[in-house]
Write a protein that binds this DNA or RNA. Structure first.
Length: 291
DNA sequence: CACTTGACCTGTCCGC
DNA sequence: TGCGGACAGGTCAAGT
C-alpha cells in the first residue's frame, strides 16, 4: 500500500504527535505475525520508553526509543498507523478521520501512552509488521543492507541511479525500478506515473534504454514523489495518514487508475491497463512505445 | 547468477 | 442473492 510519499507523510504526522510521549501499555492482537517480539522484550524495552524521534528509510518507519531500541515498521500493502489523542477518549474519531472507532477488527497492535492517547497499527492483510530491535542492529537487516539510495535526498545523483539500474540490464524497466535495491521507495503507483512522464514503456528492457532516457526517468521519479508528498500521498483504498485522513494525489495522477480515460498528451487516446511482471500497469499506448 | 513467479492474507468487486 | 475467481499500492522465497 504505502509507498515513499505515504510513509513520509505518516512520519511527519507522527513526529508532531508522539515525540516525547511515554509508552504506558502495549496490546498485541495477533502475535506473533504482526509483532513477533516476546511479551518480555516488549515489557523490557518498549513499555516505559519515551519516543525520541520518527525516521524513515525507503518504505520503512523507525520509531526510536530512549531504551536504545527502535520500533521498525513496514506497512506493506494495507498497513495503517493511526493516532488517537486523549480528546477522543474511548477510541472515538475526530471529524477529519475516515476511521471511526479504534481498535477495530484490523487492529493488530495498540500502543497506549501515559496521557491515554494511543497509536494503532491496523493491517487488513497482515503482510505488514512491527519489530522491536536494538538501534544498532537495524542496519544489519538484509533489507537495509541492499536497499538503494533515497530519491528525495539531494545527494542522490542521476548517475548513481543509472549505474544501479544497469545491474538489471536484462530486466524490464518497471520491475527494475520497483526493485528497492535500485532506488528506495518507488512502488506500483509512482512507477507507472514516472514511466508515463518519462515516455518510457514499462516493458522496455533496461539494456535498450539510453543513459539519457534513464536520467530523464530518474528526474521523473523525483518529480512524481515530490508532487505526491505535497498532496499528502495517494489513497486508493486503504491508505490514511497518522490522523486517519486520506491523501489526494490520485486526483492528479496521469495514468494510475485512469484506464479508459484520455491521455493528457493525446486527448483522443485512452489509457490502457496491462499486466507487467505480475502487476497492474497503466500506460498511454502512444506516448510509451516499447523499445 | 539473473530473472520470474508464487506465496503471504483478507476484503471487495465482477460475471454467471 | 449466492458463489467462484480475479485482483489489490510490497517483499521474499522458491523456481527456471
Amino acid at each position: 500500500m504505502p509507498e515513499l510519499p505515504e510513509v513520509e507523510t505518516i512520519r511527519v504526522g507522527l513526529s508532531s504527535l508522539i515525540i516525547g510521549k511515554s509508552v504506558y501499555a502495549v496490546k498485541v492482537f495477533d502475535s506473533p505475525k504482526s509483532f513477533p517480539n516476546s511479551p518480555s522484550q516488549i515489557n523490557q524495552f518498549l513499555v516505559g520508553a519515551n519516543i525520541v524521534n520518527v525516521n524513515r528509510r525507503a518504505k520503512v518507519l523507525l520509531i526510536n526509543l530512549t531504551t536504545g531500541y527502535s520500533l521498525v515498521i513496514h506497512l506493506k500493502m494495507t498497513g495503517q498507523l493511526v493516532y488517537r489523542g486523549q480528546e477522543s477518549f474511548g477510541g472515538g474519531h475526530p471529524t477529519s478521520s475516515l476511521i471511526e472507532q479504534l481498535p477495530d477488527r484490523s487492529t493488530r497492535v495498540q500502543i497506549e501512552f501515559t496521557d491515554q492517547s494511543k497509536l494503532f497499527f491496523n493491517d487488513q492483510r497482515k503482510f505488514g509488521w512491527i519489530k522491536l530491535l536494538p538501534a544498532g542492529e537495524i542496519d544489519q537487516l538484509s533489507f537495509f543492507q541492499k536497499v538503494g539510495p533515497e530519491p528525495l535526498d539531494a545527494r542522490t545523483t542521476p548517475n548513481e541511479f543509472v549505474s544501479r539500474i544497469r545491474r538489471h540490464n536484462g530486466m524490464k524497466i518497471k520491475p527494475a525500478i520497483l526493485d528497492q535495491s535500485t532506488i528506495a521507495g518507488v512502488g506500483n503507483i509512482y512507477a507507472d506515473e514516472a514511466l508515463w512522464q518519462a515516455k518510457i514503456h514499462p516493458e522496455s528492457r533496461v539494456k535498450n534504454l539510453s543513459d539519457d532516457q534513464l536520467t530523464v526517468l530518474f528526474e521523473a521519479i523525483v518529480d512524481v514523489l515530490e508532487s505526491s508528498l505535497n498532496h499528502g500521498g495517494s489513497t486508493d483504498r486503504n491508505y490514511v495518514n497518522a490522523e486517519g485522513e486520506k491523501g489526494s494525489y490520485l486526483k492528479f495522477a496521469k495514468v494510475f487508475r485512469r484506464e479508459g480515460l484520455a491521455c493528457y498528451r493525446h486527448p483522443d487516446i485512452m489509457i490502457e491497463k496491462i499486466r507487467v511482471a505480475g502487476r497492474g500497469t497503466h500506460i498511454c499506448p502512444v506516448c510509451q512505445i516499447k523499445t
